[in-house]
Amino acid sequence: MTVHCRFFARYAEVAGREALDLDVPRGATVAQAVDALRVMLRAGAQLPARPLVAVNREHAALDRVLVDGDELALLPPLAGG
């Protein structure tokens, strides 16, 4: 299944892009998708193993099970306000 990954701020610089589609096995968790990104991206090791994430525009836990078509966003430490 495909997960639409998005990167923001410093993580977009690390990833060298703002988005990519990632193929993961059915039933994969957010943590497994993050692991795959850290391996797949050239500078992926610079991404934290346990980043803040959002799934479909809501804050989510790393053990959240993904479904086909989900939007997974990796969020650097928030600095709004």
């Binding site: 923001f8 701020a9 410093r10 959002a54 804050h59 966003a73 969020l75 650097p76 430490p77 928030l78 600095a79 709004g80 306000g81």
Partner: peptide, 23 residues
């Protein structure tokens, strides 16, 4: 808003350099 909004800031310096500010 401070706790939940996905917003980031990048400081820009007079010399043209910049850095992400994470706090």
């Amino acid at each position: 808003a401070k706790r939940r909004l996905p917003v980031w800031k990048r400081e820009r310096f007079a010399g043209g350099t910049a850095r992400w500010r994470e706090e």
